[in-house]
Design a protein around this nucleic acid. Structure first.
Lengths: 244, 244
DNA sequence: CCCTATAGGTCGGTTCTTAACACCTTTAAG
DNA sequence: CTTAAAGGTGTTAAGAACCGACCTATAGGG
């Protein structure tokens, strides 16, 4: 019966996140992904609480947690406010024992990235593709600085979801990238590997521009496979791919 | 700035589901999708509560709600238990005003279905493909009875995620199918349309068997596109696709 | 007739979320 | 130098959700 695995999932423990947890996750991810730029100012507590439809008390719990974890800095007074830290942490808990099953994201990632690529090829605008090319060029200049590179890489992948014109996929993509960051932070990224990875980015955009969804999906699959192999600690798959 | 749309999502209202809601959703979906077969018996309340890691009180709230909505039937006594209704509802609330933005699932669905197809082509076993072919044959016999057809259709799509060997994707697929059911329930499905749709199923399995991920993804995209066009109330796209 | 497995119901305690209100800190304006 | 505005800080009380424990009601089997 093929429904065995599916049935198992039905009876998995139910554990919805609390409002507090959900808020920390949302803001924390946005900061780690660079959606909220370092140094930028958040809306006043009262307004933010209104926008998030939560009480200010709960919001403040979340803000306090994010200040303690180094994501935010709070300043009082006339010109005060809550600001994104100048150098926010890159992953949830740097150097923590990796949750067993964290690798499961990889499959989900394949789907979201490939799906976004396919729709982007169908729907993306020239302006959006130009933007992607700019990001590729930027990454070429950042091969030596992994943290910078990764930040741009995230914007690139989110940019693809943006070109797919689908809020739902965009949101899924941010989830994926947030979870990937926790994994990616674990491994070394020599400039050579980044260079190969970025060549894949360039080829991907070319396929997108031609509206060739099929080719875009193939390119994206190669790209994701590269990361998987590196993460699996296997032989440097990117070399094999680069030989094509 | 491409992060505008992404930023918007960051400040969307935070509204985590309660344990009660989450439980109703999980069990209700499983029943509507046929993962829990009509007439089958659920584990005793106490055991189920233990498995779901929730208190019996909360579980009973959920069970009561599902009994009232016609999903479950409870029987007391020596041979009692909680049973899936003989004819459970097919969608959440039949004939409700469709939530604005319910169409957004379609894009997400494209990603999950295409991703599952790609991985299934890479990893699926012959036995799993045989099972998919059986389901296609079954659907061929059910063209006249949409409710039966749709139940098998769901098992087919879940079967693809199963062949992808990815718990994460399987879970995403069940989510997608559950949300799709609410949409699909809205429209008519003449046997001719189902026949065309099922031909796409058959071609898809063929591509999967050959391990041709690229072709599988293309087939799946055509398949999803068909539904989209029907839902959009456009000209019968499947005819165009069938002309290939 | 009694035993037992199972659903149905009640109640007090704990934690999370909310709302409201008062307070503290900084700085630009006057 | 005073004051008002902007915005973070703290406190308290009420309500909702969740939990665990204990008790009741059925109904089939020995």
């Amino acid at each position: 019966m093929e429904t065995d695995a599916a049935l198992e999932a039905v009876f998995m423990p139910v554990r919805p996140a609390s409002t507090f947890e959900e808020t920390v996750e949302r803001l924390g991810s946005a900061i780690r992904l660079g959606l909220l730029a370092p140094g930028s100012k958040l809306p006043p507590e009262r307004e933010l609480a209104r926008r998030l439809r939560i009480s200010r008390s709960t919001l403040r719990q979340a803000l306090t947690a994010l200040v303690q974890s180094g994501h935010l800095v709070a300043q009082r007074g006339r010109t005060g406010g809550t600001f994104v830290a100048a150098e926010p942490p890159l992953s949830e808990q740097a150097g923590e024992p990796l949750d067993q099953g964290a690798w499961a994201v990889l499959d989900y990632r394949v789907a979201i990235e490939a799906g976004a690529a396919m729709l982007a090829a169908e729907r993306g605008t020239a302006a959006q593709f130009d933007r992607l090319d700019e990001l590729v060029a930027k990454m070429d200049d950042e091969l030596e600085n992994f943290e910078e590179y990764r930040r741009t890489d995230i914007r690139f992948h989110i940019g693809i979801a943006d070109a797919a014109q689908s809020p739902r996929l965009l949101s899924a993509m941010t989830d994926v990238e947030a979870q990937m960051s926790d994994l990616i932070a674990l491994i070394a990224h020599p400039p050579e590997v980044l260079a190969i990875s970025n060549e894949q980015h360039a080829r991907l955009v070319k396929a997108l521009r031609r509206g060739d969804g099929s080719r875009a999906v193939r390119q994206m699959r190669e790209h994701t496979e590269g990361t998987e192999h590196i993460l699996a600690g296997l032989l440097p798959a990117p070399v094999r791919l680069a030989a094509r």
